[in-house]
């Protein structure tokens, strides 16, 4: 049976089985690595390198070994706190900066904007050492502050939001001002609700980026209990052989929080990506 879909003009169009087939194949390609990760995490040692698509003997041993080898719960908690805090701080700073850049014309605005853009192009490796030295002087090593504060703002987020803020109709802002709204009121009562989709989709990107951060937590923390799950996963890898079973068990566990967030907010995430045009 052919399915129906709505075009942008509101007309119903028949979608072909061929396009459905293509989408199903692409979905399988996307899902397969996740399936393989979960499958491997439940395989017995003797079947770890089996090419079978189904598990033979199912075991929870790898999960037990992974939880015993690293402080998984603590590392997951640290990662959630770090990623959520970084995302909130970056959204806050980027909304304010984008609002400032789009709302007012001031001397040196272009230069300042260009400098912001340039910082995006500076690789992490170039700023790593000065940031680390500053952080050491502040006594923030081995702390959540050390993980979060250096990433409190993001040039990428500011540039992206600036484009959205710039396209916001000035008439609406003027109308709000005539109604007596303050600058703060204009931002939170007029602009923010209308750009929620763009901000939310940016938030998703920032959260994933923070969740996957590896090198900075590695540099800042000295103990696994203070570190993040990405560092924990590394502990199952070595040049002399990888522990695939526990690694896959740890990776499956580590991806659960993100998966739960995605399942709960699936509709909003997809909507926000479509509306903001982000890919």
């Amino acid at each position: 049976m052919e399915a129906l879909r709505t075009t942008t003009g509101g007309q119903l169009q028949r979608s072909s089985p061929r396009s459905h087939l293509l989408l199903i194949v692409l979905s399988l390609v996307a899902v397969f690595p996740i399936y393989w990760m979960i499958l491997t995490s439940f395989r017995a040692d003797g079947e770890l390198y089996s090419a079978s698509l189904l598990p033979g003997q199912v075991t929870l041993d790898h999960y037990a070994r992974a939880w015993n080898a690293i402080p998984m719960g603590r590392m997951l908690l640290n990662t959630v706190v770090m990623a959520a805090s970084q995302t909130l701080l970056q959204l806050m700073t980027s909304v304010l900066a984008a609002y400032g850049f789009s709302r007012w014309n001031f001397r040196g605005k272009s230069i300042l904007y260009a400098l912001f853009a340039l910082t995006w192009l500076v690789p992490f490796q170039a700023t790593m050492i000065p940031n680390y030295v500053t952080l050491t002087q502040l006594g923030w090593r081995n702390s959540l502050a050390g993980l979060i504060i250096p990433h409190a703002s993001s040039a990428f987020a500011i540039l992206l939001l600036f484009q959205s803020f710039k396209s916001f109709p000035l008439e609406l802002i003027d109308a709000a001002r005539i109604d007596g709204a303050t600058n703060w009121g204009v931002l939170w009562k007029v602009i923010f609700p209308n750009l929620r989709a763009s901000i939310a989709s940016l938030g998703v990107l920032l959260f994933i980026s923070a969740w996957n951060d590896y090198f900075w937590p590695l540099l800042v923390t000295s103990h696994l209990e203070n570190s993040t799950i990405q560092i924990g996963l590394q502990m199952f890898l070595s040049t002399d052989g990888n522990l695939w079973g526990p690694l896959m068990a740890a990776a499956t566990t580590a991806s659960l929080p993100i998966l739960v967030v995605y399942v709960l907010l699936q509709r909003q995430i997809i909507d926000s990506f479509v509306k903001s045009g982000l890919r």
Binding site: R65, A66, A69, I70, L224, M235, F236, S238, D240, G241, L243, P246
Partner: peptide, 9 residues
Amino acid sequence: YNLGNAAFG
């Protein structure tokens, strides 16, 4: 680098 590693730690 051995420390913390699940195999050599």
